[in-house]
Amino acid sequence: MISRATTLDRVRAGAVLLTAVVQFVIGSIGGSGAFGRPIGEVSAANETPIVPAGGAFAIWGVIYTWVLVLAVRQALPSQWARPEHRATGWWLVLAAVANATWIVLFSSLLVGWAEVAIIVLLVSLAVVMARLATFPATVADRWTLHAPIAFYTGWVSVATVVGTAATGAWAGLPSTGAVAVILGIVMVLVTGLIAAAVATAGPAPVAYAASVVWALGGIVVAGRPVLVVIAAVLAAVVVVAAVVRRVLRSRERLAAAFG
């Protein structure tokens, strides 16, 4: 039974919606250089063996739109007092603020601080994922709460690793050569193993795995050193296998895949 909505519930719902809109707007114009240098230009200046192909970053448009749908739904009066939103709302606000901050900092060439922002973003989403895993999902929840958060978290999981490598290059660590390739391989494989573990226990594993595999596919398409490409393929296979195993072992396969 859902309790009566409080003033704090209304404030939280408004904050989630407002920050989702801000995230959508800043994310939409951030790549153009509106806050300094274009993101693609800064990324190219700190390129490493694990940077995905440019087209892979189009996924941000899907993420921002899907999170906005989530924010609109949770702002409906019937949703204000739901325990799912009470448990996750303020963390979503923090995630949106961290995302917008990352864009501004990265465009301003403050790459180290930008990495801090994206780590905050990942931690915020990880908390939301962990809390959502404790709630059963209705059909509406699957597509407007669990799935968008899982999809968002999957991409940010890889983006944080890519950002860490870029931050290392920005700080003067090797970005090319054998050392960079070896580090890239290790980072990609570890990312795959962690993502597989999340897909085994977290909510909406298909959505989560889809964005992780998209990111890893971007590394493959970028045509980096062949060993990095092989590592990315292996990581993707491990993640997909974890999801398939989870779904096949469940009696309620639809819920296991998207719940």
Rank of each mutant, 00 (worst) to 15 (best):
M1E: 05
R4A: 15
R10H: 09
A13D: 00
T19A: 10
I29L: 10
G30S: 09
A34C: 04
A34T: 06
G36H: 04
P38W: 07
I39E: 00
E41G: 01
V42G: 08
A44G: 05
P49R: 07
P52F: 03
A53W: 08
A53K: 03
G54K: 05
G55A: 12
G55D: 01
A56C: 07
I63G: 05
T65M: 15
V69P: 04
R73Q: 09
R73G: 09
A75V: 10
L76W: 10
W80T: 07
P83F: 11
W90E: 01
V97W: 01
T101I: 05
W102F: 15
S108Q: 14
L109N: 11
E115P: 00
E115N: 14
E115S: 10
E115H: 13
A117G: 11
I119M: 11
V123L: 15
A133V: 04
T134S: 14
T134Y: 02
T138Y: 03
T138L: 05
T138N: 02
R142C: 06
R142A: 14
A147G: 13
A150S: 15
A166W: 02
W170R: 02
G177V: 13
A178K: 08
V179G: 04
L183I: 11
V186N: 11
V186D: 06
M187K: 08
V190Q: 01
T191H: 01
G192T: 13
I194P: 01
A197C: 08
V206S: 01
P225T: 12
V226F: 10
L227S: 14
A232E: 08
A232F: 13
A235D: 04
A241F: 05
L248I: 10
S250M: 05
